[in-house]
């Protein structure tokens, strides 16, 4: 990413609100908490849901807090059930997914990347994803959504791709 552009984004980060969520009964929160800390140190406003939240609780928090970014962490495989339910509740409550960046992180098999994107997820990050990549993607995606860019990018696994490259 262009250096000037990035700097410009960094300056605006404290206007960006991120909800980091741990839906489900899985208690593995190392990644979620490290990410919260990193995002805070990078200038974002971060809300962490804590553990053991239901789909309804996560969606309601995202709605009430009117977050710019909703990031969900799964190390239990429960994303298959939770992600569609959470996004569904958001949409039913009038949230336009073109207005919120949706990220999923954790043990997400590659064969499910496309399914996640089709559901409305913008970025899928796997365990050990560099945190810089996550924040760069947040910045890029917020800009693309705000500008209603015709050239939307997605993040899947380790790669930034364009919509047409999605398989």
């Amino acid at each position: 990413m262009n250096g000037d552009l990035k700097m410009n984004m960094v300056l605006n980060r404290n206007k960006i609100k991120v909800l980091v969520a741990k839906p489900g009964l899985d208690g593995h929160d190392r990644g979620a908490r490290v990410l919260c800390r990193f995002l805070r140190d990078s200038g974002y406003e971060v809300i962490y849901t804590g553990l053991h939240k239901t789909a309804e609780e996560v969606a309601n928090a995202a709605l009430q807090e009117d977050v710019d970014v909703l990031g969900m962490s799964f190390l239990s495989g429960a994303h298959e059930s939770y992600v569609p339910r959470i996004l569904d509740i958001l949409k039913k409550n009038g949230v336009d997914l073109n207005d919120m960046v949706i990220l999923v992180g954790g043990t997400i098999p590659e064969e499910q990347f496309k399914k996640m994107i089709d559901l409305g997820v913008d970025g899928v990050f796997i365990p050990g994803a560099p945190m810089d990549e996550i924040s760069d993607f947040i910045d890029l995606k917020i800009k693309e959504k705000r500008d209603k860019s015709s050239d939307q990018h997605y993040f899947v696994g380790t790669k930034l791709i364009k919509a047409e490259d999605l398989v």
Binding site: L25, A78, S81
Partner: peptide, 22 residues
């Protein structure tokens, strides 16, 4: 699985999406 680990039955509302999964 997580519901069993947390002392919750498979019909518990919080078990949804997690039964037999992990």
């Amino acid at each position: 699985d997580f519901p069993t680990l947390m002392g919750r039955d498979s019909d518990d509302p919080l078990a949804m999406g997690e039964v037999g999964k992990c």
